[in-house]
């Protein structure tokens, strides 16, 4: 089967090669032009952020690691263990096992509470759907992004971890910053 290029053939148009003078300019002139930028930045001083000692502040709507919340007045958990976040989660990384509140053990304001609440942050894609789904504003996307771990299972955050204040607050970018 022979192939005739026909219409499918592309003809590449090249510029004509530079002469000797043109070649020399390209080698030195362009290099010097680049160096000019380097030199001008040099006088500005270093811009490196020495993470983790220093952190970049995040925007208020940054979607970092989740937080679970309590009512400020009663201290009860806002989460009622309804599993709506788990239903909304596209990565299927939330696991909720609910249980019933009793007069002796009242955990949340509703009839039920989350006995187990786990988010597998190794799977989470930080889409924030869980926050949107929650009817009680019990879960919100926090600002923390420091979640590296040596072990995958350490990335499964339990209810206690999600309820607790983070060890260190992530700096927030102020208005207009």
């Amino acid at each position: 089967m022979s192939w005739t290029p026909g219409d499918e053939m592309l003809v590449v148009q090249r510029a004509s090669p530079p002469g000797a003078a043109g070649g020399t300019y390209r080698a030195f002139g362009e290099t010097l032009r680049g160096l000019k930028t380097t030199m001008s930045r040099l006088v500005e001083g270093p811009k490196t952020i020495s993470y983790p000692e220093e952190k970049v502040p995040v925007y208020p709507r940054f979607r970092g690691r989740h937080r679970l919340h309590r009512f400020e007045d009663t201290g009860l958990e806002k989460c009622v263990g309804c599993s709506l976040c788990a239903a909304a989660c596209p990565a299927d990384c939330i696991r909720v096992v609910a249980a019933e509140n009793t007069p002796e053990n009242r955990v949340s304001a509703g009839e039920r509470y989350a006995a187990v609440y786990e988010i597998n942050l190794a799977r989470c894609i930080f889409c924030g759907y869980c926050e949107v789904a929650c009817p009680f504003d019990a879960i919100t996307m926090g600002h923390d992004y420091e979640m590296s771990a040596y072990n995958r299972t350490d990335l499964i955050f339990t209810k206690e971890m999600l309820l607790d204040e983070p060890l260190e607050r992530t700096p927030l970018r102020g208005e207009g910053e």
């Binding site: 309804c82 599993s83 909720v96 096992v97 609910a98 019933e100 009839e111």
Partner: peptide, 9 residues
């Protein structure tokens, strides 16, 4: 069965 699971679980 009370509160044991949701249909999607």
């Amino acid at each position: 069965y009370r509160f044991r699971a949701r249909p999607w679980d």
